[in-house]
Design a protein around this nucleic acid. Structure first.
Lengths: 408, 408
DNA sequence: ATGTTTTGTTTGTTATTTAAACTAAATAAA
DNA sequence: TTTATTTAGTTTAAATAACAAACAAAACAT
């Protein structure tokens, strides 16, 4: 039984078949036409036709070299790949004290990157847009490109971003919210700009370059200065019904609990984010830990205290881990995912993410005889978030060129 | 900007256009062809063709009567409606102590119903399937029908139902879980049987007959003996990635909190469901409330105590309300819905669902300048759940007949 | 050489949608 | 009472796109 509604309607439009083929090639890297037909369910003849068009448009390349890996008999398969030179795409990740930009080619390979350090956040939307432009320009220059060579830009900001109305409701990087930051960005650049919450871009990075490759549905949880989430349902990022969902960090794990930087109480973030741990550490160790150290160092110190067996430091991580596990269990109860990816730079706190979390997760989620969701930890930094932003731009280009062929 | 991926691929297959037209007519009740074209975005010519086929197949009827409500000039519109006699559909709601069956026609009008009272749950799957058969047969007889007149049956059971694998992992109505209850039902009946979690059927009832009519995305929360949820995303019920999501009642609102009947601690259900309230009431009023009263009566007593101003009783409802509000806020933070419908029979506890809940909800969910989600309370009983089950069967028939025209 | 196998292409057919012209059926105006 | 106008719905012819089946290409096996 089931999902009879998905079983019909297979006769796709040309545009979505094109997009499906491009995404298939993008995921595979190199793939022969038969295998595309196999993977996507599109007829072999149709694959020939569409890939023919894509080759004509120089979006694809055939792989010329003779390779020995043929199955044996029969006409050898000719593999196809994305043409790296079809487009140059930019992605920008805006953090609280820096802007990281990556320039990638159409095949997703990074061409250059640039990181602008800056501590004057929050800025107005105009100031921030200019800083983004500066960073993108410098990153492009490193790749011997100018802004006019760039086909699209993806931008990720922390905070509450509604991509339906283009509003940023709140962000640590922007003053004067709510504001339509996309408008400003569009005025600044002459190519399309996609804005999104940074966690969604990390999710896109996982989907395209990371462990979400080829996986239809999964969750991504990011723990940095705040706690974010990305949800992939049926290969697409779910951004909430009205554009502002997935605020995992602000789901409540305790009635009238710890104070969060959002002003509410009991948010998960108020237990597991950087500032929450530091807040506790400062209380516990106020005579031992030097206030003047930068946040990163103080966190490291706390971590090493815990590793060395300090009970108080351990307890701080233990509580955070339990809360995180409980929050995750709620996600599991709601989404029933097969895969959860922890993604981010600060994943070194294995004390936090290992035992307590997983146990609390198991303990608080639905018990069935099916395998529990797989939980994987992925350590990567701002640069890869920027690549995710660029992937967002890539997606735009894929669907844009597809729509243009028959943009009814 | 946005959702460029949804903007392409409008060229639908015939089958989904048929289904879209049928759903449009079903939602509207009566509607002219021009308006169908308007609503669905399908070309006027195509609407003529497809409705022509549907009329030939006797799935639709034209409305003959001359009606005065024409706009004025021009050829008067001819409205179409579903042919009630096209199919008879059955829905069964299995509760902990009864089975309710509704027989509806293709237009969704109820033809008959039957309620079998029974207190011997849990039963084995064979026993339960037989009881369902008995109830359906009796309901059919009331409508002068036999089982062979029925096109499909929807069945809703409380508990954990995975409709991908047809497994019931746990249900208060079934012993020996996990079990493939669909298998048994299919052996019992000669027409297709759809099984689902009862909350999803309430959701379908809201979508077809209730306040979800014509709404693309909304949440339904049911509070009965347990707490359930239904999620409608893009007109479709989201059942979790692996088929077992939406277990709102078992999301955790307190680390190591109150004991739930599922065996875990801190589940929302353990604070707001019937048994949770009664548990507290029994502790607080053990010398005042008579144990032997049936649950419904005891709950009524508690409710009236609270209404009369009894502090202890009030506090019980107040805590439950706060917990529920917090749980709801988490749903809002994740799904960002525009509409939440409270659906069920026991919605008379306005003390519980009014002030505390809404305040706690506002208080714990994302603050933006957009309107907060609308929260509506819908009181209806088992019979309407059964109609939801029948709607599930209706949906099957709609997609089934559509797929048959061109079941590639 | 010849046959076999597998990949990829071509061709003709089919299903389906749609624009545009047309018919139908009403009211409004002359 | 015509005639024009308006709106609803239908027909027709053209366009699109997907696919099955036949075919060509390019390798290895015998």
């Amino acid at each position: 039984m089931i999902d009879f509604r998905a079983a019909i309607g297979q006769t796709q439009s040309k545009a979505s078949n094109r997009a499906a083929i491009l995404e298939c090639i993008s995921t595979a890297g190199e793939i022969a036409r038969v295998d595309i037909a196999q993977e996507t369910g599109i007829n072999r003849a149709t694959v020939t036709t569409l890939t023919g068009e894509l080759l004509d448009e120089k979006l694809l390349l055939t792989i010329e070299e003779e390779e020995k890996s043929n199955t044996g008999r029969g006409r050898p398969r000719v593999k196809l790949r994305l043409n790296p030179d079809a487009f140059a795409l930019a992605g920008a990740k805006i953090s609280e004290n820096s802007i990281t930009v990556a320039i990638v080619d159409f095949a997703g390979q990074q061409i250059s990157d640039y990181r602008l350090m800056d501590n004057t956040f929050p800025l107005t939307r105009d100031e921030l847009a200019l800083k983004v432009k500066e960073t993108v320009t410098l990153a492009a220059k490193k790749a011997n490109l100018t802004l006019s060579d760039i086909a699209a830009l993806g931008v990720g900001v922390p905070g509450y971003v509604d991509i339906q109305s283009d509003q940023v409701y709140w962000s640590p990087a922007l003053s004067n919210t709510p504001t339509n930051f996309v408008e400003t960005l569009q005025e600044t650049f002459s190519f399309p700009v996609m804005l999104d919450n940074d966690a969604n871009l990390a999710t896109l990075a996982e989907q395209r370059f990371g462990w979400g490759k080829g996986v239809k549905d999964f969750l991504v949880v990011t723990i940095e200065h705040g706690v974010g989430m990305g949800v992939v349902l049926d290969n697409r990022i779910f951004r909430g019904i009205r554009g502002l969902g997935g605020e995992f960090g602000h789901t409540k794990v305790q009635l009238n609990g710890a104070l969060c930087r959002c002003g509410q109480r009991g948010c998960l973030e108020a237990y597991v984010a950087d500032y929450a741990l530091l807040r506790e550490a400062d209380t516990a160790f106020k005579f031992q830990m030097v206030e003047e150290l930068p946040n990163g160092k103080r966190l490291d110190a706390l971590y090493h205290q815990a590793k060395a067996g300090n009970e108080t430091a351990l307890a701080i991580f233990e509580r955070a881990g339990k809360m995180l596990g409980m929050g995750l269990a709620n996600l599991v109860n709601i989404f029933d995912p097969a895969l959860i990816i922890f993604s981010g730079e600060r994943m070194q706190f294995d004390l936090l993410y290992e035992e307590n979390v997983l146990e609390e997760l198991r303990h608080n989620s639905l018990q069935t005889n099916r395998p529990p969701p797989e939980v994987r930890v992925h350590k990567w930094g701002d640069l890869l978030w920027a690549k995710g932003a660029a992937a967002w731009a890539t997606e735009y280009v894929i669907y844009d060129t597809a729509a243009q062929t028959n943009g009814r």
